[in-house]
Amino acid sequence: MTKNIMIVGVGGQGTLLASRVLGNALLSLNYDVKISEVHGMSQRGGSVVTYVKYGDKVCSPIIEKGEADVILAFESLEAARWLPYLKKDGKLIVNTQQIDPMPVITGAAQYPENIIEKIKETGANVDALDCLALAEQAGSPKAVNIVLIGRLSNYFDISDDVWQKTLESTVPAKFLEMNKKAFSLGKNAD
């Protein structure tokens, strides 16, 4: 059985690193793993999505509507945008941070109010937390991605040891302690 995880956010938020940490952790457990990313034009502050799939044998590297077991959303509006990709009994982990897209900045569109509440009203299983505040607490607003990975670890049967080793092999040494703290804050936040 294949498990599907989507990582969605805004270009520049570090979604690619998050997918690599997750992919390497899964590979070390001997799963077949596929990760799909999009580069180039859409990376420049646009809506970005990365797919991580694992199981005995993975075919398609991408995830479609109604297929994601977990969506890890780096931003609230992106959580709403990609909600249709969640399985009915899937889990949506969302950073409550709001980043205005250009149509909102120019006044051509409105950022929806109480968007997290509206997502919950659909019946989706939502785990919302302020990852930016936790990342700043860990030492850098850039650690939002690792806070979210820490949160995600609650939904996997992967030992802390494997996660720690994966962090060591994926993030630069000088940021390792800060990232370990960010991971732990995300994992244990209320």
Binding site: Q43, G45, E64, K65, L83, L86, K88, P103, K118, T122
Partner: peptide, 29 residues
């Protein structure tokens, strides 16, 4: 995608949730 194949050959589509709200686009900048 796999959904294109499911829809066009098997006539199947998966169920999904949507927020009843206009979601502004997020074009690259």
């Amino acid at each position: 995608s796999q959904s294109t194949v499911e829809k066009n050959i098997l006539g199947e589509q998966k169920e999904f949730l949507t927020v009843d709200e206009a979601i502004p686009n997020r074009p690259p900048v």
